[in-house]
Amino acid sequence: MNLQTLSSNPALMNGSTAPAYFTTKGAAYIGDSRVLLECLPDDSVDLVITSPPFALQRKKEYGNLDQHDYIDWFLSFGRIVHRKLRDSGSFVVDFGGAYMSGVPARSLYNFRVLLRMVDELGFFLAEDFYWFNPSKLPSPIEWVNKRKLRVKDSVNTVWWFSKTQWPKSDITKVLSPYSDRMKKLLEDPEKFYTPKVRPSGHDIGKSFAKDNGGSIPPNLLQIPNTESNSQYIRGCRAVGIKSHPARFPARLPEFFIRMLTEPDDIVVDIFGGSNTTGQVAQSEGRRWLTFEELPEYVAASAFRFLDKDINPEIARSLYDDIITGQSVDMDEFHEQMMLEL
């Protein structure tokens, strides 16, 4: 695949197997992302953003590895990602925290991943982010609910890696809304704010009274993960299948896609899951690719690209087509279903 090919037909990647489904902007593939990444030319991707299975002690239904094996396993993906990124590109990874086996002491696996990505693979840590999920249930049960020795773990580490020291980035695309107090200050700076020299001797003048369109966000991202009636969830219910148990909230990839890419840039998710990343990239006008090993997750993720009112028969037909190995053009699928109805 070259970039012109992706622009005109995102379903083609160097003669590889056909995608499970594709849109005018992107495509979802079933398979090992290490193999699929090799179908992309080096220095061609603008952003890889993903949330891999976490290194938990207890096995989850969506798969995870022992903490001691996890780091080497993850670096096998990181090596390929480094080659595929443009010099201005970024690699954003969400890691959940974990405890050591059998004791209320934290594992450092996510920090060891960070150090080895920088020391061994040549990535730079552009910035560390922390995703606070206020809706997260108390866990781990043993140390929080039963013995009441620890508070609930509700913060994930999100590492923003870059290929060079100067990745593409524009924080004006992710400004936060001003507070009511700030809005009053902007309306009448003289009334609400008197500039003073700080203890450090720095004179901030009236710079805070300038309307910049919003405030600069912190690296603590407060985003609840409370998806309960989305297009994807409704599709899963209509077909009678389980939804993916560890889904991105849309606002998380949205933040980084807006800050680190421009329209028509290429965004890749190497652990696609329910393909929140592809849906957000599509809505933001980016080209996208998502890779996921489990066919049932990929088939269900196509519900994100159906019309708002999901017909159970249409959802089942789409799911079955993908599960049985057909490559679905989502635009053609829509037209066909509308004709049949």
Rank of each mutant, 00 (worst) to 15 (best):
N2H: 13
L3S: 08
S8K: 12
T17L: 12
Y21N: 10
I30P: 00
G63K: 06
G89E: 02
V92W: 02
D94I: 01
F95R: 01
P104H: 03
Y109Q: 14
V118T: 10
V144N: 11
N145E: 11
L149V: 03
R150I: 05
K152W: 11
T157N: 09
K163A: 09
P167C: 00
K168Q: 11
S169V: 08
I171A: 04
T172R: 14
L175P: 02
D180C: 13
M182F: 11
L186Q: 10
D188C: 09
D188A: 10
T194N: 06
K196Q: 08
H202K: 12
S207Q: 06
N219C: 14
N219Y: 15
L221C: 12
Q222I: 15
P224S: 15
T226M: 14
S230P: 09
Y232A: 03
A238H: 12
A238K: 10
V239L: 12
K242Y: 15
P245M: 09
A246M: 14
A250V: 05
F255G: 07
R258Y: 09
R258N: 15
D265A: 11
V267A: 07
V268A: 01
D269A: 02
D269G: 05
F271S: 01
Q279S: 04
G285P: 00
F291H: 05
E292F: 05
E292R: 06
S301N: 04
D321W: 03
T324H: 03
Q326K: 07
S327L: 04
V328A: 02
M338H: 08
